[in-house]
Amino acid sequence: MIKKAPPVSISCRDLTLRFPVYGVDAKSLKKSLAAVTVGGRLGTHAHVTEVTALNHVNLELKPGDRLGLVGHNGSGKTTLLRALSGAYEPDEGAIEVQGRIAALLDLSLGIDPSATGLDNIRLRGRIAGLSSREIEARMDEIASFTGLGPFLAMPVKTYSAGMQARLAFAAATAVEADVLLMDEWIAVGDSDFQKLAHKRLLKLVERAGILVLASHDTDLLRLYCNKVMRLEGGVASAVTDIRKLDELMAA
C-alpha cells in the first residue's frame, strides 16, 4: 500500500542564487512608469543590481550525513539553508531534496504574541505541516516539555523572553523530519532547560537522516557533524571529513 519511498537525500547541482536588490527607488511605480515614458533612457533605474549569494555550489548528502557549514558572516550559509528549505528558486542549477524537511532557522516564525501559548503551538505545528489531529496528539508532550504549565493558556506577550524561547523551541522541535536544517545550534532558556533542549535536539538529529548545521562554533561542529563544508563569498569548498576542519579553516 505504502509506496517505497526513495532514500532521504540532498542534492545541489551547480546551485547559483542571485539576489536582485530592488532599491528604494525601484519599488516606486512612478519610477517604472517614468522609465517607460522616456523610452528606457534612464537605464540605471531599469537595471537591477544583483548580489550573487551562492555561486555554483555542488552538494550531495545521503542518510547519516551530518554536514557542518562554516564561513564568515555573509558567506552564504543561511542562504544555502533557506534554499534547501525550498524558499528560494535557484537562478541556475538545481536543488533536490527527498524527505520531509524541517528548517529550524527562525524560532519566532509564526509566533503571534497576542495568542495563547497553546494556540501558538497549534499554529506553528500547522505551518510545519502537521495536521490538527497530529498536533492534538502531541500537545501533551509539547506542553509538558515547555514546562510552562498554566501559562500556556495565557497570551505569549505576557511571557518573559526566556519563557517565549521555551515555547518557540518546544513548538518548533515537535516535528518529525528526515532533513533537519539549523542555523546555529539553538540553545535557549535557563541551564535546566538548556539540558533538556539539548537532549531533545539530539533525539531529533538522530531520527533525521540528514543534518545541515551552520555555525561559527568549531567545537560544536566537531561534536555533532561528521562532514564539513566551507563557504566563502558564495563559493563552496568540497565536502570534507570533519577531522580536517582545521585544515579547511586555515585554507
Partner: peptide
C-alpha cells in the same frame, strides 16, 4: 503525513 516528500527547485527551464 508519513509519506516522504520530494522537493525540486531549479533554474529557469
Amino acid at each position: 503525513m508519513e509519506t516522504a516528500t520530494h522537493m525540486l527547485r531549479t533554474g529557469r527551464r
